[in-house]
Design a binder for these strands. Structure first.
Length: 481
RNA sequence: GGCCCUAUCGUCUAACGGUUAGGACAUCGCCUUCUCAAGGCGGUAAUCCGGGUUCGAUUCCCGGUAGGGUCACCA
């Protein structure tokens, strides 16, 4: 019944992080799916900040979260930075709403002040532990609780203790026994609501139709359901996302075990559209076999019914491959912009771009290329031993002779503008008469680069230009004599 | 420990009970090649175990095992 009712409604999804630090790929993935689903259905995507735990709050988190989401290309129609019809979007500014609904529950006799201290509750808990019984607060429900004045926690009173069953878009039919129900805290003694209560009220007031979140909330869903019943409000659709496991172990990815700040990927030179592509596939796959998706293609293909049930590992090798594929698809001017950002002034040569582009999987790799000195020869004459010019066991005189021929041909050619298309035939023609092309191509390449491993001599001479190419070959001949 | 959930190549996954179990990453080999990179072609490699149901189980059911989640005045 829920399903049919919601089909005619405008889709509203939200991402509701708590400002307790940076976001890692797990959080971004949750946001991505909620955003994509709303986008695909012309719905509304809301950003809400769940800042009800003042002790764990970290300064600057909200800005950091917003920056992370914006980088990957997720935008929202309503949020703390832009406002909207359901403002405010920070739970700490919505306390009136929680109190309003709390009072409704109190009036119905479905909420009461908790007279015990934390220590006293702890004693109950320990005792249950010792008896190897699950702890339930409701086993200790006070007979005559005091009037709630805000100084004590306000607890929900489960009226109807029963087994709950519900439908999850991803997991299907789920159920839990009555031990999943308890008199949990709605509003803490500091006046802030708990997640368990606040998110229900907010989702209700903001008209959220689809709740997407990790599987850690499955266990507490019966509690939410009991509140829906108490308040007589309709359940939203539950969309449980599969966990993302760490690269190494089998554990769910978390900040404690190595999950990094999402913005680190930006600093390492990954493309935001590649990150979106990568994240999209951790927990979902489309119908076809296409693996490289633009943001538009992803939104178009996204289907919550194809979200996976079981968790997948975070695989950085796959990320690198996806990123490389996205680099290949970049327009020339975009590619230049990205690559030049990582290059020192003297290496910001247009012609060097394809050489670099096909050798990296992320732009941060350029840093290693620069630091290793393997690009220096583009602006600096190479230093090397003359023996390095020798190809296999070819005798020195032949190498020198071949270099002379190359020099001669390149000097006499009428081409002023050296391009690899023009240089290649010239050198290849010379090499045709040789027992092995390496006898001329190797010394030429080495004369130009001074490196065991480098791009081919044709592209090198194009980048270096006629004058520099000829000069370096001359120098090699001198070294051999 | 109680409750809940999950299980296909090393990894991510596809396969509305009938497929030589498909694809991708990684890996290996070959081709192209003076080296590197890129590219092309190909190979190795999987249904956790045990019972059922069925003419026929990767697929449905039960049990085991393994893994994950959760049992807060955290979200």
């Amino acid at each position: 019944m829920n399903n049919m009712e919601n089909q005619n409604k405008k889709i509203v999804t939200r991402f509701a992080p708590s400002p307790t630090g940076f976001l890692h790929i797990g959080g971004i993935r949750t946001a991505l799916y909620a955003w994509a689903y709303a986008r695909k259905n012309n719905g509304t995507f809301i950003l809400r900040i769940e800042d009800t735990d003042k002790a764990r709050e970290v300064d600057g988190s909200i800005e950091h979260i917003i920056e992370s989401l914006k980088w990957i290309g997720i935008n929202w129609a309503e949020g703390p930075d832009i406002g909207g019809p359901n403002a405010p979007y920070k739970q700490s500014e919505r306390l009136d709403s929680y109190v309003k609904y709390a009072k409704i529950l109190i009036d119905k006799g479905l909420a009461y002040a908790d007279p015990y201290t934390e220590e006293e509750v702890e004693v109950f808990r320990k005792k249950a532990d010792e008896n190897k019984k699950p702890f339930l607060y409701r086993d200790h429900r006070p007979e005559n609780p005091p009037i709630w004045d805000g100084s004590k926690p306000l607890r929900f009173k489960v009226a109807d203790i029963k087994s709950y069953e519900w439908e999850d878009v991803v997991r299907g039919h789920l159920k839990a026994g009555e031990e999943a129900l308890d008199d949990f805290i709605l509003i803490k003694s500091d006046g802030y609501p708990t997640y368990n209560f606040a998110h229900i009220i907010d989702d209700l007031e903001m008209g959220v139709t689809h709740v997407m979140r990790g599987d850690e909330f499955i266990s507490s869903t019966p509690k939410f359901l009991s509140v829906f019943d108490a308040l007589k409000i309709k359940r939203p659709e539950f969309v449980t996302l599969p966990p993302i496991m760490g690269d190494d172990g089998k554990k769910k990815l978390g900040k404690r075990d190595g999950a990094k700040d999402f913005l680190e990927y930006s600093k390492e030179g990954y493309l935001p559209e590649a990150m979106m592509n990568f994240l999209a596939f951790i927990g979902w796959s489309p119908e076809g076999e296409q693996e490289i998706l633009s943001p538009e293609e992803f939104i178009n293909l996204f289907d919550i019914n194809k979200i996976h049930i079981s968790g997948g590992k975070y695989n950085e090798e796959k990320l690198d491959w996806i990123n490389k594929e996205h680099i290949k698809r970049l327009k020339n001017d975009e590619l230049e912009k990205y690559i030049f950002e990582w290059l020192p002034k003297e290496l910001q040569i247009k012609k060097i771009i394809p050489i670099i582009a096909e050798r990296i999987s992320k732009f941060g790799d350029i840093k290693n290329m620069v630091n290793s000195g393997e690009l220096d020869f583009f602006y600096k004459k190479p230093e090397y031993e003359s023996s390095k010019l020798i190809y296999k066991d070819t005798i020195k005189e032949i190498i020198a002779h071949n270099l002379e021929n190359a020099l001669d041909a390149l000097t006499r050619t009428e081409e002023i503008d050296f391009t690899q298309d023009k240089i290649k035939p010239i050198l290849m023609e010379l090499s045709d008469n040789l027992p092995n092309r390496g006898q001329i191509l190797h010394p030429v390449r080495f004369a130009l680069s001074g490196l065991d491993k480098s791009p081919d001599p044709f592209i090198l001479s194009e980048i270096l230009g006629k004058e520099e190419t000829i000069s370096r070959i001359k120098k090699a001949i001198e070294l051999l004599s």
